[in-house]
Amino acid sequence: MTLEIAFFGVIGALVVGTIGAAMRISPAAPARAAATAFTEFFRNTPPLVQIYFLAFALPKLPGIGPHLILPAVVAATLGLVLHQGAINVEILRAGLQAVPEGQREAAAALGLSRLDQLRYVLVPQAVRISLPALGNNVISLFKNTTLVSSIGVLDLFGEANDVIAQILVSAELFLTVGVVYLICVTLLGTLFRALEKRLAFG
């Protein structure tokens, strides 16, 4: 369960991040404004509260609410996608900004269109610059999958939680679960550092 939520969460957050970042640098002011509002709101509110909102408040929307009763796992994943996606928007935008101005000029001087400048010159470099921060965000999303247990989805942690309720031997069990998470997080970290090395310039 943890792995599924993390998997869809990471993919979703990357998609949200990419679309959002594209909107934030678009020439259309309304697109920029919408993306900025989205990013700032979901970056600055707790993912747990977002999950609660999606799971328990959305269904109360007058009219369409009853159609919006999301299975707990969907609400939780969506909440993580929104929060972590908003952070990705910011990371990718900062990455694009960090590409030196001379790179855009050189690409423009060759006659590349705006889109091709982005596609072949700016985005590939921005992704490399953003990689460490994106990696941290993946790790943070993975850790945040624990929040899912709070609305009744069994993830790695929720399973431990249930067992405690019955046999009340939680100290070691929590430690075990914590260590399992820790190992996963360390593995993810190592993976990302390897990826950074591979993609480094030169």
């Binding site: 030196p100 001379g102 790179q103 000029e105 050189a106 690409a107 423009a108 001087a109 060759l110 006659g111 590349l112 091709d116 072949y120 010159v121 590939p124 470099q125 490399r128 310039f201 030169g202």
Partner: peptide
Amino acid sequence: RRRVGMVFQQFNLFPHMTARENVTLGPRKV
């Protein structure tokens, strides 16, 4: 821009591409 080539003080080569890829990008895409 295809009629005007420009060389910059700071080179501005694309660091994620090889020398060959730097040279072929314009001819291929433009």
